[in-house]
Design a protein around this nucleic acid. Structure first.
Ligand SMILES: [Mn+2]
Ligand SMILES: [Mn+2]
Ligand SMILES: [Zn+2]
Ligand SMILES: [Zn+2]
Lengths: 155, 155
DNA sequence: CGGCTAATGCAACAGTGTAGCGTTTGTCTG
DNA sequence: CAGACAAACGCTACACTGTTGCATTAGCCG
């Protein structure tokens, strides 16, 4: 049983994986980030912690975390995947992509209602809803009326 | 005034661009495709028509078409943009990504209703809704109940 | 036709991600 | 704790998408 609810080593071991320096460090970085971050950002964070970070090993580590439900990945606006740690909750939420800083945010609290009927022959696996605009920490001209009223949005 | 409603040369000239062999051929290819296709697919189609296709020129041509409202681009599932010709209609619709063949389809007839409230501080530019699954021409195990009833979908 | 400039073609490069393969190292067993 | 085995690592090399710089070509306009 893990001492902390989010102990990287314990979570990795519980999935049947070997507890290595890279895996624990990467998972810890993802927990600390709090939002989906790119392979490159993970590498920089590993640098800051003095942990070696071979590019290929990092890719494989991130993929391993995803395939073992310790992380999920979301496509970024720049053709690079973003990864973030997940607990046990479902990954059914929209994402916000900042047009200025490129950061991606999980909108876990947002529960969008989508009503749609696919044309015949299309078999649905999953739906992805992403919003693009400016994040709270970026300056910009767009007026914010988000957070004040519930909008109908046309993608 | 154009002879045909969709005469590539006339459309290009109307935007103030020079009517070149590559531009007319690419726009014609996009019109014929009927769905968003990748840079590579455009190149193959140009091959079939005996039109030279330098990689860089093709990228620049596609970008020019997009920036002059003759095409729109949508991110594919494989980190490659897909381009398709547009008339004068708005580009406000969802897209379908086939997990098997990788093709992308514009769901122009689909008018999804999205109701959502963004957290405070996020300023919305646009929303993108994409469905992933199997397209009509791909075999697969997923049962189709699309096209029969209107579903609520959780992204 | 002649000139100006947009557009092209080519080379070189950057960023993301993958495949092969020999080496290291966790983990399990005795 | 020692040894064995397989998982994970680190390195090289590669594929693919897209961009930049610059000299050359070729639309377009008069
Ligand atoms: Mn997420
Ligand atoms: Mn479209
Ligand atoms: Zn931002
Ligand atoms: Zn398909």
């Amino acid at each position: 049983m893990p001492e902390r609810p989010q102990d990287p080593a314990a979570l990795i071991a519980a999935r049947g994986g070997r507890v290595t320096r890279t895996r624990t460090a990467v998972l810890s970085v993802l927990f600390d980030a709090g939002r989906p971050i790119s392979h490159d950002e993970v590498g920089a964070a590993l640098d800051a912690r003095g942990v070696s970070h071979d590019r290929v090993t990092l890719y494989r580590t991130l993929d391993w975390l995803v395939s073992h439900d310790l992380a999920h990945k979301v496509a970024g606006p720049d053709r690079a995947w973003r990864f973030n740690a997940v607990g046990d909750e479902e990954h059914r939420h929209a994402h916000f992509h900042c047009d200025l800083c490129g950061r991606v945010f999980c909108l876990e609290s947002l529960q969008p209602a989508i009503a749609a009927t696919l044309p015949s022959g299309f078999r649905l696996g999953r739906a992805e809803l992403s919003f693009h605009g400016l994040c709270p920490s970026c300056p910009g001209p767009l007026r914010s009326d988000a957070g004040h009223n519930r909008n109908k949005i046309a993608p």
